[in-house]
Simulated scan of single mutants.
Amino acid sequence: MPSPCDPKYAPVGDVSAALLMMDSQLKAIYDESETESEAASEARTDAEQRRLTKQFAASLGPEGIDALLDGACTLIYMFMQWLRAACEDHDEDIVEYVVPTLVSSMRMMPKTFRPEVIPTMAGLVIAAATGLSPNLWRSQYGRWTDAELNALEATTILLAERINRITDDHDFATRLITQALSDH
């Protein structure tokens, strides 16, 4: 019996916009981490990125925001599928490999991940790891909360950064998605 959270039923959303936001955040993190102390870099990046993100989100309108959220969930799904394949190549369990380190990273960033959103973000990742659509899984619990929006974006960044670290290539995760988009 097919699950109502099967990815074939999920809206893809605006993957390009979600990818643009994720990629710009990663580039800012990589650029600033190479040139500044971590604390100063984080403070400046956070303030500037929040301003730019709010400005970008305001330009999208309500339907655009929903499409962006769906696009971010699609990124999470695609990243987790890549990570699942990488784990299977090494006889590792995807949930065991990704979730504990992801949750510990989230716990180290209390401004981005308020404690009450960590289970939701972990749930999105676990849903994707088990072949379910993260956005359909999340929609069972109602509308996105304001606290979850920033955490959703950060979750995509953490997964992309994990992939980039595994491949030792700062642009691999972005190319992975760009190639998948150009193939379809």
Rank of each mutant, 00 (worst) to 15 (best):
M1H: 12
M1T: 07
M1V: 05
Y9A: 11
Y9V: 01
Y9I: 09
A10N: 03
P11A: 04
V12F: 05
V12E: 01
D14I: 01
V15E: 00
V15I: 14
S16M: 00
S16N: 07
A17Y: 02
A18H: 01
L20Y: 08
L20K: 03
M21R: 09
M22T: 15
M22L: 13
S24P: 05
S24F: 11
Q25L: 15
L26K: 06
K27W: 15
Y30D: 08
D31L: 00
S33G: 08
S33P: 11
S33I: 11
E38C: 06
E42K: 12
R44T: 15
R44S: 15
T45V: 06
D46G: 01
D46N: 13
D46H: 11
Q49V: 10
T53R: 15
K54S: 14
F56N: 09
S59H: 10
L60D: 00
L60F: 09
G61D: 13
P62Q: 08
E63P: 02
I65A: 03
D66C: 05
D66L: 14
L68F: 15
L69P: 06
G71P: 05
C73Y: 07
T74M: 06
L75V: 14
L75N: 01
I76E: 01
M78E: 04
M78A: 01
R84S: 09
A85T: 12
A86N: 12
A86L: 13
A86T: 11
E88L: 06
E88C: 10
D89N: 09
H90S: 15
D91L: 06
E92T: 08
D93Q: 11
V95D: 15
V95W: 15
V95A: 03
Y97R: 10
Y97A: 10
V98R: 00
V98C: 09
V98Y: 08
V99Y: 08
V99N: 03
P100Q: 09
P100H: 09
L102S: 07
S105W: 02
R107A: 11
R107Q: 15
M109L: 13
P110F: 13
P110K: 12
F113V: 13
F113Y: 11
F113K: 04
R114E: 04
V117H: 00
I118Q: 03
I118L: 14
T120D: 00
M121T: 07
M121K: 00
L124Q: 07
A127G: 01
A128R: 05
A128S: 09
A129M: 00
A129L: 07
T130K: 04
G131C: 08
L132H: 02
L132S: 02
S133V: 13
S133C: 12
S133D: 02
L136C: 14
W137N: 10
W137P: 02
G142V: 15
R143L: 00
W144H: 04
D146L: 03
E148Q: 14
E148C: 03
N150T: 10
A151V: 02
E153H: 14
T155V: 12
T155R: 00
L158D: 04
L159N: 06
E161S: 04
R162Q: 13
I163P: 05
T167V: 15
D169F: 05
D171L: 12
F172G: 02
A173V: 01
L176Y: 07
I177D: 02
T178H: 07
Q179Y: 10
A180H: 01
A180I: 02
L181D: 01
H184L: 14
